[in-house]
């Protein structure tokens, strides 16, 4: 070998007609003066012609009619509406753009959750400021519930009426709610 081993792939591409004009001319000139490459060219051409002959003789025996019938059937086949819809959606939203929607939504969700966690009440100061009374049991006593909107105050007020318990008489505080 004269160091022309790396030329073999180029010779194969040359024989297949895959080389550009300049590469083609350069390799042709080289093969003309290089015995080793000339021999490789001859060997590859022989191999190619043998394969081609074998392929042509075998191809005659193959029946292509069923294959073409199947192809024609597939071409003429009416596709279901959802398949059409999916395809048009795919055309409108190319895959790379859709792929980034998923993490983008997740990041947005993360931002919303984090804001609520680190900046409580960011959605509006007064939105949830009122206390909500879910149940009251004053054991038979009078009870009043007041919600004052200016100060967002919730007041639960226990009071005794005039005929209330004895201890009411001992106190000088007003018996009814003062508000």
């Amino acid at each position: 070998m004269n160091g022309c081993e790396d030329k073999i792939p180029s010779i194969e591409r040359w024989l297949d007609g895959e080389l550009s004009g300049a590469e083609n001319d350069s390799l042709r000139s080289h093969v003309a003066v290089c015995a080793e490459c000339s021999e490789a060219q001859r060997r590859l051409e022989k191999l190619q012609s043998t394969l081609k002959a074998a392929l042509l003789s075998e191809a005659q025996r193959v029946d292509f009619a069923p294959f073409w019938r199947a192809v024609q059937l597939r071409v003429n086949e009416k596709r279901p509406w959802y398949q059409e819809a999916l395809d048009s959606m795919r055309r409108a939203l190319p895959a790379p753009r859709v792929a980034w929607v998923v993490p983008a939504v997740i990041v947005l969700l993360l931002a919303v959750v984090s804001l609520e966690s680190y900046l409580p009440g960011w959605r509006g100061a007064g939105r949830n400021a009122f206390a909500t009374v879910e149940s009251i049991d004053a054991y038979g006593r009078n009870v009043a519930l007041l919600r004052e909107y200016d100060t967002k105050t919730t007041v639960i007020w226990l009071y005794q009426d005039q005929e209330g318990e004895n201890e009411a008489a001992e106190e000088t505080a007003p018996s009814g709610p003062a508000f």
Partner: peptide, 21 residues
């Protein structure tokens, strides 16, 4: 004297009053 269940905002408050003192 009183049993109640209340939901208040975090860092919020409510007022419970009335017992004489």
């Amino acid at each position: 004297l009183l049993d109640t269940t209340v939901r208040i905002s975090n860092k919020g408050n409510f007022i419970l009053g009335g017992p004489p003192h």
